Computed example of a mutant assay.
Amino acid sequence: MAKHRIYAMSFASVYPHYVAKAEKKGRTKAEVDQIISWLTGYGQKELQAQLKKQTDFETFFAEAPEINPSRALIKGVVCGVRVEDIEEPTMREIRYLDKLIDELARGKAMDKILRKE
């Protein structure tokens, strides 16, 4: 089975859309970066390096320093698909990030987005 085309897309090409979606709803780039860091373990310098290298989505998640185990608490629908039901691991990680950005844009509190008790 062929890989989904999003795997080959550069993370840097989609990142501005994440930021724009958040800023349009009164949130900040720093909050987007905080979500990405929470999910992947990338620090600010590492994230900037990945953006500069034009890393594709598959590599971005494969090279993530520390995927957050609490991401399993992320539930809901993105693009008409339940994120918890996605079997392919890389696609699930991408959709987790999409879901977190959606929650940010909808005004959810950061503590809830980052699944803090």
Rank of each mutant, 00 (worst) to 15 (best):
I67V: 12
I74R: 01
Y42E: 06
P16Q: 07
A49S: 06
D33E: 12
M91D: 07
Q44Y: 02
I86W: 10
E117V: 11
V78P: 01
T40Q: 01
K52N: 05
E66R: 12
A22M: 04
R115V: 05
L104Q: 06
I94K: 06
R106N: 08
I74S: 01
V14Q: 12
K116A: 11
I67N: 00
S13D: 12
F57A: 01
K29P: 01
E84L: 12
Y18Q: 04
D56E: 08
D56N: 15
I101A: 11
I113H: 08
Y7V: 05
N68V: 08
Y96M: 05
A105E: 06
E84H: 10
K3N: 14
H4D: 11
A2M: 11
L97P: 13
L51V: 00
G26C: 06
L104V: 11
V32M: 02
A30K: 10
E88P: 15
I86V: 15
L97V: 14
R82F: 07
G26I: 02
G107C: 12
Y18T: 03
T90N: 14
I113N: 05
E84K: 12
M1D: 10
A2H: 10
G107I: 07
R82H: 14
L47G: 03
M1Q: 08
E88T: 15
Y96N: 08
A109H: 13
K53F: 00
P89D: 07
S13Y: 00
L39P: 00
K53A: 09
P16G: 12
E63P: 00
L104W: 05
S37P: 02
L104G: 12
Q34T: 09
M9R: 08
V77P: 06
E23A: 09
K25L: 01
Y7G: 09
M1T: 09
I86P: 10
M9F: 04
